[in-house]
Amino acid sequence: MNIGARIYYEKSTGNIIVNTGQRSGDVIETTVEQDFYSYAVLAERVPETVGVIQLDYGQYAADYAQGGYIARVDMDTLEPLFTYPDPVDPETPQEPRAALSKQVDALVQDNTLLKAQSSALSERADFVEDVIAEMATQVYK
């Protein structure tokens, strides 16, 4: 069985309280209530002040592989925000941001759209050139 991580966060700030991590093998999925009983840091909190995000198994694997970790939850989108080490200065703290994998997906979509728009503009320019050439042929006859 494969179980994705649960991210518990403060509803007021988006700060992470517990990241249960993903599990696989001979494991049993717990309920949110069981987690509040099992994790001391959750047990001392009022459940109504804590939010939870259930991730799929393997979700954000590419981000974790890049050294990223979930630093906070965006309270507008309820998406996890990642912090990645700076390749030049790994000790310098970075601002949490959207997962790089999501940013890459958005850039791929933008790139596909821009290619389609460029192709359409090129076809239109070719058409206009053909029309002008045809008109010039008619005028100079």
Rank of each mutant, 00 (worst) to 15 (best):
T83I: 14
Y69N: 06
F36V: 06
G67P: 08
Y69Q: 05
Q66R: 15
G67F: 10
M75W: 04
M75F: 04
G67K: 08
V73N: 00
A71S: 15
G68E: 07
L42I: 07
D35N: 09
Q59Y: 11
V46W: 01
A62D: 15
Q59I: 08
R45I: 01
A62G: 12
I70V: 14
G51R: 02
V50L: 04
V73K: 00
T49M: 05
A71L: 02
D56S: 14
P85Y: 11
L42T: 05
Y57N: 12
G58S: 12
T49R: 09
Y64A: 09
A65K: 14
A62H: 13
F82I: 06
E44Y: 02
A65I: 05
D74E: 13
A71C: 07
R45W: 00
D35Q: 04
P85F: 11
Y64K: 09
Q34L: 02
Y37F: 08
V41N: 08
L55N: 06
G51F: 03
Q54Y: 08
Y37A: 09
P47S: 07
A65V: 04
Y84N: 04
T77F: 09
E48G: 02
I53L: 14
Q34C: 01
D56V: 02
D35P: 03
E44V: 15
D86L: 13
I53P: 03
A40M: 07
Y57W: 15
L81M: 15
V46E: 14
V73A: 05
Q59F: 11
Q59A: 12
A71N: 06
G68L: 09
L78F: 13
G68R: 02
I70W: 03
Y37D: 11
V41K: 10
F82K: 00
A71Y: 11
M75Q: 15
E79G: 02
